[in-house]
Design a protein around this nucleic acid. Structure first.
Lengths: 253, 253
DNA sequence: CGTCAGCTTGAAGGTGCTCAATAACCGTGG
DNA sequence: CCACGGTTATTGAGCACCTTCAAGCTGACG
């Protein structure tokens, strides 16, 4: 079977033949959509020599708040949470990352947040030093990272409005909407079905609420018929527009 | 008087003689610390042909939420607030910008937040199109913008913890600390004196509180002696460490 | 069938909000 | 100089929403 001609994704970069690619990368989920999409075959070969793919179980810690981290990574599958804590243990999730996001903070030795697997996660990690060198030479790579930083900044600001000004009911609706659009970014349908990748305590930490309040609001939301939830995690949204209407934020839309 | 030899700032870039610089830029506050520091003399000349400096009064709107903006700008003086609103008018400030920050959202035609002068502000604005072209050709420029985006992302995440998990007292202390370190980033002293660049309603919108709560907490904080406040805006902090201790967030410090 | 983690539900209490009145500040003009 | 209106900030009383604490429920797995 001729992969080059048949796989629609490969058409994106005809300059690179699969035969030149490291085996590790050939069938990789992040090969085109992640940062590796802007690396040359030569760079991929070099990087792949120091690359390892890991599975990380849900709830496992990947990096600690304030820790110096020696490796970057791409997320290939699953959901990763970024969280900050106060000295007395209160916790706030400050970001969620999905495949094929890049994990790491360029130009700074340490993250000032903890990194933890929310679900089972598959990552592809590699040494900082090598990528840092690529960044300084390949403007395309820095551009790609810049775009991700800007997207995360937009999302953080959107979430600041949620944390600072929305009621518990609106926060929970905002969360479900957020997951609905991130779980399958390609989907266009007005009807969605997905699994919530977080447990209630994570949702609470993301929303700045307690698990009890989250639970109560989910119950209420379910009673309105806007969402159907079974087995605690499985969500069906018959009409995404209706959910969106509960959390409308813009004057002009 | 020989500016080139006497002004210590010019030593930073001996490759560019002031005589080649646009007059507009020669004594500019953002010439070295802002993004212009990475532009070539040639780029500065081209940019300066389409550049204007404005004064903007406090509380004046610079751009609306969702509006398409045709110009970027550098902040030369004053404080700018970025804010988002819900449909029913609740407001949240999602960022503050100080000189010599770059103002604008690269790679996206519109901001999804409003931009407003918090104090009287002086800016230097120029067309998007020209800078966008420079960005695609000058990796240094994109790097500089990337660094600012990452810094803003770090600050947003820090603020998400404040909004999601801190009490009113801690939020107000966090705000004063934030302003103390931003008002004069160079200062190292443990004693600080500055003017709060926001009025109470802005502080409330930044902290996700009401003005009444902000006012009450400021009164309480003043009574502890950790800060002295006169004329509503003038703050004296005799011991910044003590203020920092009220809002400690990290396990490892 | 018992145990344990995760989730839901209930009752009571507290933090911050709403509504309302008072006070300080500031530029303008008599 | 003080009087004046408008804006901004403080203070008070009552209440609502979310939290806290506690008990019960559900499903997975031995």
């Amino acid at each position: 079977m001729d992969v080059v001609n048949l796989n629609p994704e490969t058409r994106e970069r005809l300059d690179i033949h699969n035969s030149e690619l490291p085996i590790l990368c050939q069938a990789c989920e992040a090969r085109h959509k992640g940062i590796c999409g802007v690396l040359t075959a030569e760079q991929l070969v070099r990087l792949s020599k120091h690359t390892t793919k890991h599975m990380i179980g849900a709830e496992q810690q990947i990096a600690f708040q304030g820790e110096t981290v020696a490796r970057y990574a791409n997320i290939l599958r699953g959901v990763v949470k970024l969280s900050k804590s106060t000295a007395d243990g209160r916790q706030q999730i400050v970001g969620l990352q999905f495949a094929p996001d890049f994990m790491g903070r360029p130009f700074s030795k340490e993250n000032d947040f903890a990194v933890e697997a929310a679900t089972d996660v598959k990552i592809c990690s590699f040494p900082r030093a090598i990528l840092d060198e690529f960044i300084s030479r390949a403007p395309d790579l820095e551009h790609r990272l810049h775009l991700q930083a800007l997207r995360e900044l937009d999302e953080s600001r959107e979430w600041m409005l949620t944390l600072g000004r929305k009621t518990a009911a609106e926060r929970v609706a905002s969360f479900l909407y957020f997951i609905a659009v991130h779980a399958d970014p390609e989907a266009t349908s007005n009807e969605r079905k997905f699994e919530i990748p977080l447990k209630r305590s994570d949702i609470a930490d993301f929303l700045g609420l307690t698990i009890e309040t989250v639970s109560r609001q989910i119950t209420k939301l379910r009673q309105t018929g806007i969402v159907h939830i079974s087995n605690n995690r499985t969500v069906e949204i018959p009409d995404l527009i209706k959910l969106r209407a509960m959390i409308e934020v813009n004057f002009l839309d």
